[in-house]
Every structure is written in C-alpha cells, then in structure tokens.
Amino acid sequence: CKTSERKSRGGKAEARSRGVAKEKTLECGQIVWGLAFSAWPAAEAGETDPACTVGLPCLILATGLNDGQIKVWEVQTGHLLFSLLGHQDVVRDLSFAPNGSLILVSASRDKTLRIWDLSRDGRQVQVLSGHVQWVYCCSISPDCSMLCSAAGEKSALLWSMRSYTLIRRLEGHQSSVVSCDFSPDSALLVTASYDACVIMWDPYTGEQLRTLRHVPLHSAVDYSSEVHTSSLRSVCFSPEGLYLATVADDRLLRIWALELRSPVAFAPMTNGLCCMYFPHGGFIATGTRDGHVQFWTAPRVLSSLKHLCRKALRTFLTTYQVLALPIPRKLKEFLTYRTF
C-alpha cells in the first residue's frame, strides 16, 4: 500500500498561500469494504508512539479489505500503522469502541468477528464464532458494554464486550438481518432485515419493544425490479436518540420518530445501501451501489427535558437497575422506553 497526494494546479507554494486543501488517496491494493475512524491519543513526552507526535492527538482510519486484511492508517500523513491478519475472507464491517480504548471489532464473510487491541501493537484479543452465514454488520454500544452482530440469518447476536461471550440471540425477524445500531444511551438496539421490518429491542432483557413495518409507496416503486421492494439495507439512530433513518430497496430513505409507528419524512433515492447521521444531527449521508454519497437534511428537534433526563439516566443505568428503583410504575415504563 502507498499514499498519494494531489494538489491544485500551481504547485506547493500556491497551495500553501491560498490554503488549498490537498486530496489524499490511500492505496490499499484491494477492494475496501469497511471503514472506521478513531482518535489516537497524543503521545506523552519521552514515549515512542507509532501514530502521533508528542502532545498531538491524531485521527486513524481502519480499512477492511477484500483479501481479509485490515489496514490501519494515520490519516494526516497516510502512514500505515498496522496490517492486521487473521480473517480468511472479506472484512465487511469495522467498529471502534467509542471510549477511545483503541479496541477494534471486525466482521467478516468468514463468519467470525475478531477483536483487536491497537494499544497492544494490534494484537488479536478474541475470535467470536457463532454465526453460520457471512457477518455483514457489527455495532458497539456507546457505553462499550455490548456488541451486536448481524449476518445473513434471521437472528442477531448480542455479545459482552467485557468477557467476549455470547449474551443472547435476538430472534424475531422472518428473514436475514443485515444492519444494527444502538441508541446513544445504549438503552435501545434496532435491527433491520430483508423481511421489511425494523425491530426495536431492549438489549438488556431481549424484549421486542416495537416493530416498524416498511410499506412501499407505489409512486416510488419500480415493479420491474426483481428485488423485494421493501427489503431493508441499513438502519441508524440520530445523535439525540429520537429518530431512526432507514434505507430500503423501494428507493426510499425514511425517517422515523421513535414514538410513532410510521415515517415522518421520505426522500427518493436509487440503489441505496447504507445511511449514517452526521454526529451533531441535522444531516444524513447515504451510500449507493453506483458509488455516490448523498447528503440529506434531517429534522432537527429540541429534546424535551424529560427525554434529556431519561437519556442521562440510561447512560449509566441498565433496564434491571431502573426496574429496581423505588419509583412509580409509569416512570419506570418511560425510563425503559416502554412508553414515550
């Protein structure tokens, strides 16, 4: 692999004087299937750090490749930090632990997930086996206690990020589960499936809380397609945890409010495969089969004081801890998302 840079016409001096940003390309030598960013902490004085100079944190990017390798890069310089070997097939998805621990989870077509610790020279910590089909998606809860994985199966698997053992199998879909995401407070988990449904779960109890069914809109559907018109491809939570975005094969991006069972907004799109909210809200990025990324305006909402309090509490309280509190039943139902 190598790094190449391109600048605007006029050379280095002109680029510097005008503040023109350079385009950087990381030459991985393989098809790139998965990407994940993380911050690498600044090196302390006297330390030798493979990524960052003393006192300056930096951004790293993990790339999942067609040959099963994972290559980790320092973004600013394009320096290759690690080549992680172990997977026997395409690395389909990657996820860094949100707490900055430099723990990386990879999901592969070899039907396994692997845990890597970049703070220990990229050591492989664990191999998680349990899927019988290709693993498409992996998501780590914001509190870093749980990992969800989705494969070409009717169930999703929930793992402990502390012991790296299987917690439970989430069963309820009628077709392959292909996408999953945790809410910002880790209190909810959503899974999307080819059965045209999104299921919202309590990850602590395994209870199904809500099912969102995708009904095709006739004006947006091309019935000449052989693909099931509502097969889901991707689901993600908004940063404040009040909305979901979904991409389906019926050529629609949908936005759902948690308290409703029908979408609050639609946008027409073609060949959609994935979606992601901007970290601060207000925009959604979608990726397509034809190589495009599109950006969409999403509803901005001012969270109610009730929701902010619930979100703050659920950041450090599990469902079982909430249920054990000496508070009224209706308040417990609200805090555990049984009511909105």
Rank of each mutant, 00 (worst) to 15 (best):
K2S: 15
T3P: 05
T3G: 04
R6E: 13
R6V: 13
G11E: 10
G19T: 07
V20H: 14
W40I: 03
A42S: 11
E44C: 05
H79F: 02
L85I: 14
Q88A: 13
V90T: 12
G100E: 00
S101K: 00
I115N: 09
D121G: 10
D121S: 14
G122T: 06
Q124P: 07
Q126H: 13
Q126R: 14
Q133L: 11
C138Q: 05
I140D: 00
M146C: 10
W159D: 01
Y164H: 13
R168L: 03
R169V: 14
V177Q: 07
D181T: 03
S186I: 10
L189H: 05
V190I: 01
I199Q: 12
P216H: 05
V221I: 14
Y223Q: 02
G241I: 05
T246H: 08
R254E: 06
L260C: 10
L260K: 14
L260V: 04
M269P: 01
L273P: 01
P279G: 09
I284T: 06
A285D: 11
G287F: 02
T288P: 08
D290H: 13
G291E: 07
H292S: 15
W296D: 09
T297F: 11
R300A: 15
L302E: 14
S303K: 01
S304E: 11
L305D: 15
Y320D: 15
Q321R: 02
V322W: 12
L323Y: 15
R329W: 11
Y337P: 01
